[in-house]
Simulated assay, not measured.
Amino acid sequence: MLPLDDLLVLDFSTLLPGPLASLFLAEAGAEIIRVERPGGEDMRRFPPRFGETSAPFAALNRGKKSIEIDLKSPGALAQLRPLVERADIVIEQFRPGVMERLGLGYEALRELNPRLIYCSISGYGQFGPRAQEAGHDINYQAIGGLLGQSLKRGQEPPLPPTLVADIGGGAMPAVLNILLALRQRERSGLGCHLDIAMADAMPTFTWYSLAQGQVTGSWPEGGEGLLTGGSPRYGLYATADGWFLAVGALEQKFWEIFCEALELEPALRDDRTNPEATHAAIAAIIAAEPAAYWRSYLEPRDCCCTLVRSLEEALADPHLTARGLLEAQAEEPGGRRLVSTPLPLAPTFRERAPGLRRVPASGGDQEMVRDGSGE
C-alpha cells in the first residue's frame, strides 16, 4: 500500500518540470496518464536514443501510461471527459491561456469534476507583466537574482550544471502544492487551481543574501557572499592535477580541524582579518598535491572537505547504493533498461523494492480514451 495509490493524474506536460512532478506522484503509487500530441511529446526525440525511445524520456516516465490526442480537435474534451470526471489531478505546462483556448482550462474542467486539483506550471505564472514571456531555466535564474550570486564582473562565467528553476521552481513546488491541495480537499471536498511559476522560487534560493542585504544595506555582489566565494571557508580549491576540492568548513570547529590539517600559518587562521590572504594561502597548499592525496588525507578528518566527484564516480559511491536511490529501473518497449531518475522520497513513501517498470510507448494505452475505464 502506497500513500497515493488511489489517485489518478492526467499529465499534459512536456520536457522536465511536469513529468518530473508526476514521476514523484507515480513512485508514491498514483496512476499517471500522459496526454501526448499525435506522435508523442518532444522529449521522446531527445538524444541519446534508448531503444525505441529517448533516454531522457525513459528516465522521467517509467511506470506511467500514455494516450495520444490532438488537443486542437473539436472532439478533444469529449474524448477526455470520462478520464477528467474520475481524475484527481491535472498537470499542465502550457503558456497561460493555452488550455483555456483549447477548452481544457480549469473552469471548464471544474464543471465536470469539482474535486479536481488543477496544477499549472509555467515560467512566470498565470498573471503578471511577464506571464506571456518565453524562457528556460537559465532565464528564470537570471531574472530572479540567483544566477548573479555566483558571477563576478569581468570574469568568465561558469554555466550552472543544475536546472534549479525546472526542478526547484517547477517540479518540486508542484508536488508540494498538490499534496497541500489534497489535504485541503479532504476538508472542503473541492479542488483548486494551482499557479506554479518557476521564476517565483528563484528568490527562495537567495535567502541568505536577501536577509543580509535588507538588514545591512550592503547587497553582496557575485562571488562576495558567504556561500558564493566571499569566504575561504566555503569554496572550491584546485588540486595539483587540475581537479577540485570542495571545502565547507563554515563552523569554527570544522575550520580549526581544516587549518590544523593544512598546517596553515596561525596568523591566517582568523579569516576575518584578511580573507583574501587566507584564501590565497589555502589555494597554494591545495595546489601542491593531487586530488587523490586530498581525498585520502582530508575526507577522513570530518571537517566538511570533499573531493569533487564526476557523475560516473558518484553513481558508484557505496553510500548512494545503500540508500536505494539507484534501484528503480525503466524498461523501454524494446526491452532495454536504465536506472530511472533518482528521487529523494522517504523510503516509507515509495515502493519497498522499486524494481522494474515500463516506459510507455506513445499512445500505448489508447484504449483508455475510448472507454475511460482505466482497465
Rank of each mutant, 00 (worst) to 15 (best):
M1Y: 09
L2N: 05
L4D: 04
D5G: 09
G18H: 02
L23E: 02
L23Y: 04
V35F: 03
E36I: 01
D42A: 15
D42W: 08
P47A: 15
F50R: 02
S54E: 07
A55S: 15
A58T: 04
A59R: 03
L71P: 02
A78R: 14
Q79S: 15
Q79T: 07
L80E: 03
L83W: 04
L83N: 02
R86W: 04
D88Q: 07
D88Y: 01
I89R: 01
V90H: 05
R101P: 11
Y106S: 05
L109R: 03
L112I: 07
N113C: 10
Y118K: 07
S120W: 00
I121Y: 02
P129L: 07
A131H: 13
Q132M: 12
E133Q: 14
H136R: 13
D137M: 08
Q141N: 09
A142L: 07
A142Q: 05
G145C: 08
G148S: 13
L151I: 15
P157T: 11
P161G: 12
I167E: 01
G170I: 01
M172R: 00
M172L: 14
P173D: 02
P173A: 04
P173F: 04
A174G: 06
V175K: 00
V175I: 03
I178K: 03
L179A: 11
D195C: 07
I196E: 01
D200G: 03
P203C: 11
T204K: 03
W207E: 06
S209H: 10
Q214A: 14
Q214H: 13
Q214D: 13
V215M: 12
T216W: 09
G217Q: 13
S218N: 12
W219L: 10
E221Q: 15
S231W: 03
L236H: 11
G242R: 06
G242F: 10
G242E: 12
W243I: 00
F244G: 00
L245C: 01
V247R: 01
L250N: 11
E256L: 15
I257L: 13
F258G: 03
E260W: 04
A261G: 10
A261V: 02
R269M: 12
D270C: 11
T273Y: 03
P275Q: 11
P275G: 13
T278I: 07
A281K: 07
A284T: 14
I285C: 11
A292V: 15
R295H: 13
P300H: 08
P300F: 10
D302W: 00
T306Q: 06
L307V: 13
L307W: 02
L307Q: 06
V308A: 12
R309P: 00
R309T: 05
E312Y: 05
E313W: 08
E313V: 11
D317K: 06
H319K: 09
R323S: 10
L325G: 00
L326D: 02
A328R: 02
P333D: 06
G335H: 04
V339Y: 05
T348D: 14
E351V: 04
A353Y: 07
A353V: 11
P354S: 11
Q366L: 10
M368V: 15
R370S: 13
G372Y: 03
